[in-house]
Design a protein around this nucleic acid. Structure first.
Length: 853
RNA sequence: GCCCAAGUGGCGGAAUGGUAGACGCAGGGGAUUCAAAAUCCCCCGACUUAACGGUCGUGCCGGUUCGAGUCCGGCCUUGGGUACCA
């Protein structure tokens, strides 16, 4: 009996697939196409278990689709621009490009042993000149279509390093390297006009039936369509009115003050000759640029001294305050506050001693608001206090509509629809990104580069010094010659734009590029028409909003410019979001009480407790995200070296539902290896035996057909863990079966086939061993025979008052009345009824019986 | 803060509103072996019972239902996102 030697088997079959070009995708109109895509990785230089899980899931789908007769496109690439490469250059010298390509080489070497069904001939990285050159061409087309523009926007400014910081580079309001307090600063930046498509991006979500509902909901809330009222507050001093936008105009009679953003034009105008206000605004500008920082910062206000008139009562004057929680980007940057029905407004008014007045009460409670705002759902009926539109008892929703109508008829306000979604700022003041292909000319202004001059390449180390990360800032800015160019319009000396593009741009169209990765246009019509859309997209839930929304916009923009067909405007037909791979953290407290983290290989597990070599017990924190600093990262390469790729693949699929996190455990991986060894052993036993037909043949084959049905259902519904549970069960059945060798051989071949999406190498080996024809990867997927699935009888539990008290086995199609008779005669029932009639008898055919006594 | 999820034995998890705990791990017992490894078989939520069985049990509180892990309302905890991490 030979042993399961994964390393030999895996190398052998990978070579076979490679020789046959099994996974090379070629257009073939005679077959239905299937495009499966996993979100491409950032080339950190180290393959992570999370990658293994993500790609294995895609591989299961891809191999299953090959087996069901599809022409499959399954590509892979790298999302290769971004900050880590610049950070590496800052930390240890070298060039981001060298660092990135070295990492890509390493990761490809780590991925290939997994035996994924990838068409490697289509691979590219977004930092390849061929890719980002085409991206620049797209940018110029977008610019030409009016989809790109420039405006001012705030960034995190580090006043010591004199550089722009990313949000993650701001720690506690300070720059991560300099430690200086970060300031908000305005810069002129490039924007994509995604907001023009807000409504369409929202409406189209409804048709994405094969996306997780949670992702559609998150995008819906992010786009944030709201209906409200826009109107002006007349200023007592006669200056231009202050225009506010509110989604709760019905609470206007409870208005306490008018609030404006620190970035509002009025704030800025007053700042110049008011040092006190300037100090206040400087304080506001110390808060970071993230929504989280703004929303959670302590609420600050400043009374401008400006007074405005209430639109319904010119004698009622309201103060105008600058408040740090009002965003200039949303609405008009000005609001009116109704503290009785908004907790944030209420907190603010209590802090600054501003009046609080209820505009409505609950039907059964007329206590005025104290320190908790009254905020019922908009569909709840409430009683209004002297409502100006004449309402008494009505819902918030009705009151809002009545108020908008009232204001429009009276002529002092307009009902408007607004979106929370802002335009997409794509400018980055960084080197390692796609250069924005425009030129600044003293006479012509901002001029797009000519397409024939593309790609605008990033400068490399021409003189060994040009690209220097030892000083902060953007190396493109201080490069001695790179900026110099001729104006594409007038030919005079001009300067290149030094901003590069947000890396989300790179990942917003790579899926389209995979359909024609070497073309000298962004896409090729025939290839895009054949391969698009992505039939199944798989990636992390962390991309639910930004990446997926930007990609949806980009596909629309590419369609407008003729780079994608109309049918590809919504590029991902189905989406699946998978969970993380986690691992326990092993820690002991050190002298200061801080934790010291221990590597898994240094910890011995006994009875659920962990011990170091010297006997010290370690604290085990289960299911933590793998992190280098916590020493709990499991390296896929060592697992593959130890057990083989099939074991790693089997394990990451087996233990948890794919959408949830899976905890990597050494014992789980070991168990997976033992199971695969067992399957191999069973297959070799079966191959070596020779008996005639046996009585148990039919039973085994029935179980085989059930396994085909259940495993197939699991694969089709992303229930890979359920498929694997069935495969365990069927393996046990086969191992214990008394069937003859022919039936067993058929069962074992089918087992190998059903396992082949998960463990393709082992399956090829067993398929060959048992005389399967050709490669199992090309064998048609088995189909369950309905006749073999029919059960003659069914066992139903008998419940009395909802509690299980017995069971009854009856023919599958026994009429309800007869089942009732049998149940009422059942000992468990008669003993509890004691001759009385049941109050109710519920028979769910084939399922359950409940007797109510 | 706001938006979106998740929470079931010692552990990962299973369960179209219909027998809670499939399958796997860990643990316990046994077979095989000179012994071990490997393999095979059995047991395995808590409490209670000699046993049959009974009671409780799916984060917490309440509701709908003949019947709730599943549906509804309100919390708690953890995770993801929060527009310059990718």
């Amino acid at each position: 009996m030979s042993r399961y030697t994964a390393a030999e088997i895996e190398a052998k079959w990978q070579e076979a697939w490679s020789k046959n070009e099994t996974f090379k995708a070629v257009r073939d109109e005679s077959k239905p196409k299937y495009y499966v895509l996993e979100m491409f990785p950032y080339p950190s230089g180290k393959l992570h278990m999370g990658h293994v899980r993500n790609y294995t899931m895609g591989d299961v789908i891809a191999r299953y689709k090959i087996a069901t007769g599809h022409n499959v496109l399954h590509p892979m690439g790298f999302d290769a621009f971004g900050m880590p490469a610049e950070n590496a250059a800052m930390a240890s010298g070298g060039h981001p490009k060298d660092w990135t390509y070295a990492n890509i080489d390493t990761m490809v070497d780590q991925m290939k042993p997994l035996g994924l069904s990838l068409d490697w001939s289509r691979m590219f990285a977004t930092c390849d000149t061929e890719y980002y050159g085409q991206q620049q061409a797209l940018f110029l087309d977008f610019l030409n279509e009016g989809l790109v523009y420039r405006k001012n926007a705030v960034v995190n400014w580090d006043p010591v390093d004199m550089t722009v910081l990313a949000n993650e580079q701001v720690e506690g309001g300070r720059g991560w390297r300099s430690g200086a307090l970060v300031e908000r600063r305005e810069l002129t930046q490039w924007f994509f006009k995604i907001s023009d498509h807000s409504d369409e991006l929202l409406q189209a979500l409804d048709a994405l039936d094969n996306w997780p509902a949670k992702v559609r909901l998150m995008q819906e809330n992010w786009i944030g369509k709201s209906r409200g009222l826009e109107f002006g507050f007349e200023r007592v001093d006669g200056a231009d009115p202050i225009t506010v936008y509110t989604t709760r105009p019905d609470t206007l009679m409870g208005a306490s003050f008018v609030g404006i953003s620190p970035d509002h034009p009025i704030s800025k105008e007053m700042e110049a000759d008011n040092p006190e206000l300037a100090a206040f605004l400087a304080e506001c500008r110390k808060v970071g640029t993230t929504e989280e920082a703004i929303e959670t910062a302590p609420k600050l206000g400043y009374d401008t001294g400006i007074r405005v008139k209430h639109p319904l009562n010119p004698d009622w004057e309201l103060p105008v305050w600058i408040a740090n929680f009002i965003l200039m980007d949303y609405g008009t940057g000005a609001i009116f506050a109704c503290p009785a029905h908004d907790q944030r407004d209420l907190d603010f008014c209590r802090k600054y001693d501003l009046p609080v007045t209820n505009t409505f009460f609950m039907l059964d409670d007329d206590t005025p608001v104290a320190n908790e705002a009254l905020v019922p759902t908009k569909s709840e009926r409430v009683r209004w206090v002297d409502h100006f539109a004449g309402l008494d008892v009505a819902t918030g929703e009705e009151a809002i509509n009545a108020t908008v109508d009232f204001a429009e008829k009276a002529g002092w306000g307009t009902g408007v629809t607004k979106f929370r979604l802002r335009d997409w700022g794509l400018s980055r003041q960084r080197y390692w990104g796609c250069p924005i292909p425009v030129v600044h000319c003293d006479t012509c202004g901002v001029v797009p580069e000519k397409k024939e001059n593309l790609p605008i390449e990033l400068p490399y180390d021409e003189d060994g010094k040009a690209i220097d990360f030892s000083v902060p800032g953007n190396p493109l800015d201080r490069h001695p010659t790179w900026r110099d160019c001729a104006c594409p319009s007038c030919g005079a000396a001009a300067k290149r734009e030094t901003d590069t593009m947000d890396t989300f741009v790179d990942s917003s169209w790579y899926f389209a590029r995979f359909t024609a990765p070497r073309a000298d246009t962004p896409t090729v019509a025939e290839d895009a028409a054949y391969w698009m859309n992505v039939d199944q997209y798989i990636g992390g839930i962390e991309h639910a909003i930004l990446h997926l929304l930007y990609s949806r916009f980009f596909a629309r923009a590419m369609h407008i410019c003729g780079h994608l067909p109309e049918s590809a405007k919504e590029p991902f037909d189905a989406l699946f979001t998978q969970g993380m791979v986690t691992h326990a953290i092993y820690q002991t407290p050190n002298a200061n009480g801080r934790p010291t983290y221990h590597y898994p290989e240094d910890v011995e597990l006994r009875d659920g407790k962990g011990f170091l070599a010297d006997g010290t017990e370690v604290e085990i924190i289960p299911s933590a995200k793998m992190s280098k600093s916590k020493n709990n990262v499991v390296d896929p390469v060592s697992i593959i070296d130890g057990f083989g790729a099939d074991t790693a693949r089997w394990f990451v699929l087996s233990d948890s539902p794919p959408e949830r996190d899976v905890e990597w455990t050494a014992s789980g991986a070991e168990a997976a290896f033992k199971h695969l060894s067992r399957v191999y052993r069973i297959a070799t036993d079966v191959a070596g035996s020779d008996t005639g037909a046996q009585a148990a043949d039919e039973e085994l084959l029935r179980e085989m057909h059930k396994a085909i049905r259940d495993v197939t259902m699991g694969v089709e519904s992303f229930g890979f863990n359920a498929s694997i549970a069935k495969l365990y069960g069927f393996t046990n059945t086969l191992a214990k079966s008394k069937a003859g060798s022919d039936a067993k051989r058929q069962a074992a071949r089918t087992l190998a086939q059903l396992m082949s999406p998960m463990t393709p190498h082992l399956s090829e080996e067993i398929w060959q061993l048992l005389g399967g024809e050709g490669l199992v990867v090309n064998a048609p997927w088995p189909v369950a025979d309905e006749a073999m699935l029919v059960e003659a009888s069914v066992t139903m539990p008998i419940q009395i008052n909802g509690k299980r008290r017995g069971e009854i086995t009856v023919p599958k199609d026994m009429p309800k009345e007869e089942v009732e008779k049998l149940v009422l005669a059942h000992e468990a029932v008669t003993s509890r009824l004691e001759g009385a009639q049941p109050k109710k008898l519920i028979v769910v055919p084939g399922r359950i019986v409940n007797v109510v006594v």
